[in-house]
């Protein structure tokens, strides 16, 4: 949260930013860091989307419970994205299927894309930021 950064630049250039998430949560810091950067990026009023491919799909798995791990469960924060106007969450179907997951296993509403569609979606971005 930032009090000073609430700027509304009139007529600024809006680019398409896609944050590409490819790592499982907790085992490495990538998933959490990526999510924090996405939340901060919301202040810049760009066209932001998130892609979940490979182990990144595990970030959205329902029912995460880190009590006995001593780490913060950050999965509820994905549900806050909508309030930040980040509503384009794309999940690659093949990654989900390889891991035995279905859309019902995910804790937010997403758009499921097959591999070719995801590739096309990535192609059309101005900027890709990988985690």
């Amino acid at each position: 949260m930032n009090d000073e950064m609430d700027m509304e630049e009139e007529g600024g250039v809006v680019k398409q930013f896609m944050f590409v998430n490819r790592k499982a949560p907790y085992g490495t810091i990538y998933a959490l860091e990526g999510l924090e950067v996405v939340l901060i990026s919301a202040a810049f009023e760009q066209d932001v989307s998130m892609a979940f491919i490979d182990d990144g799909v595990y970030e959205l798995k329902k029912g995460q419970d880190t009590k006995s791990l001593g780490q913060k469960n950050f999965s509820p924060t994905y549900r806050a994205l909508e309030g930040y106007d980040i509503e384009k969450l794309y999940v690659e179907r093949e990654s989900m299927e390889a891991r035995g997951l279905t859309e019902e296993d995910l804790l937010v509403d997403v758009v499921v894309l097959d591999r070719a569609e995801m590739a096309a979606k990535m192609d059309e971005q101005d900027v890709l930021i990988s985690f």
Partner: peptide, 15 residues
Amino acid sequence: GEYQIAPAIRVLTKA
């Protein structure tokens, strides 16, 4: 409690 983060000011005012 619900989202595990403090909201950005813009998000706070809207909410």
